[in-house]
């Protein structure tokens, strides 16, 4: 079920789902990124953690093509950004949904703008809901759902067009604790089922480690990569993972690095 004809596979699948070379970005005189390089192994869930205002949102927005950059190169699966199919989950679901459309029309919007016929859209959305066991009355308007359900709807909207990468900018930060657990589990389920690589900005260190294969620790501005930490606990990760030794060790390690960075 592909949207466009799959491109003829000539060689082995790309080694990296995102690869950045010599990226430079400034706002006025403030240098944010200067010659920034990054390669992310394919099929991974990568989370990004760093001090406030270091440019995490700017980074995710540049990679997803929402913010232009000054120079350098960004490739998604070895292609330029505009040729990649991207899903994006915004931090503030309230300001990213189209409240004049029903939840269904919101989810189907990425299909509609590509000119997909209505019956196909319906099938697509139905399949999506089935795959992830989601039972919502989609005739309702987004604002009539709870926060967690709204964020889930925006995740579905980002998934419906079968993106090859999913970007999430602080997807849990507008949610309360209980809903965070719910949305996080759904997200893990989605990752396990679809195998879509994900690039996620997170503002809480444990949150960053919990779901990730790789944690990117960023420095203060001008921003560079301090360390790429791997975390390979088995999936699905559960509440037990939180108290397992590898998790505690990796979290401690990340925290130490973060503290050192802040002292600089």
């Amino acid at each position: 079920m592909m949207l466009d004809q799959p491109e003829p596979q000539t060689v082995a699948p790309p080694e990296h789902f995102i690869s950045i070379k010599g990226l430079c970005k400034s706002f006025g005189n403030a240098v944010l990124y200067d010659n920034f390089d990054l390669d992310l192994p394919r099929n991974q869930l990568v989370s990004v953690f760093g001090p406030n205002g270091c440019g995490k949102s700017t980074l995710i927005n540049m990679i997803s093509g929402l913010t232009p950059f000054d120079s350098g190169e960004i490739l998604i699966h070895d292609k330029p950004i505009r040729r990649a199919r991207i899903g994006y989950v915004f931090q503030n679901y309230r300001e990213a949904m189209l409240p004049w459309l029903s939840a269904y029309d919101n989810i189907a919007y990425p299909l509609r703008v590509r000119g997909m016929p209505e019956h196909e859209c319906r099938d697509r959305v139905a399949t999506l809901l089935n795959t992830f066991n989601i039972n919502l009355d989609l005739k309702r308007y987004p604002y009539s759902f709870s926060g967690g359900q709204q964020q889930l709807i925006s995740i579905l909207r980002a998934l419906v067009a079968e993106p090859e990468v999913l970007f999430l900018d602080e997807p849990f930060s507008a949610l309360d604790f209980e809903t965070t657990l719910f949305v996080r589990d759904k997200l893990q389920e989605i990752f396990l089922t679809t195998q879509i690589p994900m690039f996620m900005v997170v503002h809480n260190l444990e949150e960053a480690v919990f779901l990730a294969d790789t944690i990117l620790l960023l420095s203060k501005r001008p921003t560079h990569l301090v360390e790429m930490v791997s975390f390979d606990a088995p999936r699905p990760r559960t509440l037990d993972t939180l108290s397992s030794r590898p998790f505690v060790e990796v979290s401690r390690h990340c925290l130490d690095i973060f503290r050192q960075e802040m002292r600089k």
Partner: peptide
């Protein structure tokens, strides 16, 4: 944010304008 959302979902300028 809504304009960006529409953009990242693949809407063209006319679709962003009317939707």
């Amino acid at each position: 944010s809504r304009i960006l959302a529409a953009k990242v979902m693949g809407a063209n300028p006319w679709q962003i304008f009317k939707d």
